[in-house]
Every structure is written in structure tokens, then in C-alpha cells.
Simulated scan of single mutants.
Amino acid sequence: MDALHVGDMDIAYAEVLSTGDDLLLVKLMERSGPTVDQLSNEITDEVLHFISQCLVEHNLFDLCLSWIQQLVDLVMENGPNILGIPTEIKNELLLNLNEDSLAMDAPEDWEGATSAQLLDQLASAWAIDLQHFVK
């Protein structure tokens, strides 16, 4: 957490990810807010994987949505390959976001796009056909 205080998000996230402590990672994500644009591609991949797992468990929904919203904004502004996210992480995130959009509504105080809207925007930007996610 010391790295967070001096503003080095990448080091802060790398240190927390190396501990394997999910609770500490959540605390860091809450404290820093979405920082996808400040992380290395490798750290971004790990954080997005964690976020997709949180979506499946339906906990931390609003935290996940805020990070996904920032991801959508970055991808829409800078192109689909801006962060070099591997296809398997893209697919995992879209699959879990799809399941989430069918199962849950955004919190009442949520002011951003819905999970269904974020899903559509990411799938479109990444040119991934959502039909293969339909069961």
C-alpha cells in the first residue's frame, strides 16, 4: 500500500497481486478507483481476470462495473488493442459479464452504463460475436 501513497499504481497492484490476498486486492481497487490506464498490460490482465471472477460470484458488482466502464472508455477512445488483452481474458470477461447482465441489475445508485450495455460495447469494439455465449 505504500506504493499507492506515492502514486505508483503498477507497483502497488503488483505487490498486492503477489500476495494472493483477494481482500487486500479489493481494498486497493476501492481505494485507488479504476486505474486501468495506469497499469502495465500484465497487471491489467491479472486485474481483469480477478474482476471477471467477481462478476461470477456476484459480489463487488459496483466495483467491477466501474472498472469495466473505464475499460470500455479506453477501448472506445483508443481502439480495441490498446491494452493488449489476450483473447482468453476478453472472452472470460464477456462471458461472465453476459451471465451477470442476465442475472443482476445494476445497483440503484449506479449512474453508469448497465452491464448489458458494457457487454455490447466491449463485444462490438473487440469484434467478438456474442452468439457463442448464448446457452
Rank of each mutant, 00 (worst) to 15 (best):
Q70N: 12
C54M: 10
D109R: 07
A14S: 15
T44Y: 00
L48H: 00
Q69F: 04
L48T: 00
V26E: 13
A103H: 06
P34W: 02
E111I: 08
L39R: 01
K90R: 14
G20N: 07
R31W: 08
L23I: 14
L118W: 05
D22G: 07
I43W: 01
C54I: 02
L23F: 08
E111A: 12
S115R: 02
T35Y: 03
K90E: 08
G84C: 06
L95C: 10
K27T: 14
L55C: 10
K90W: 03
E77N: 14
G7N: 11
T44M: 03
F50V: 06
L28K: 03
S32G: 10
T35E: 12
G112V: 04
S52L: 09
S52W: 10
T19H: 01
C64T: 15
E88Q: 12
G79F: 00
Q38F: 06
A3P: 00
A106V: 12
S18W: 02
H49D: 11
A103S: 14
I68D: 00
W67S: 10
L93I: 02
N91P: 02
L122R: 05
V47Y: 01
H49E: 09
L48K: 00
S124K: 07
D129A: 11
N91Y: 06
L95R: 08
H58R: 11
D2H: 06
S124I: 04
W110A: 04
E46G: 03
Q38D: 09
A106M: 05
Y13Q: 02
N91T: 13
V75M: 04
R31K: 15
N96F: 03
S40E: 05
N41Y: 04
D129G: 05
A116T: 01
N41Q: 11
Q121A: 13
V56S: 02
E77T: 15
F133G: 05
H132I: 12
M76R: 12
D100N: 14
E92S: 14
D45Y: 07
T87E: 14
T35R: 07
M76W: 03
K135E: 14
H132L: 10
S66Y: 05
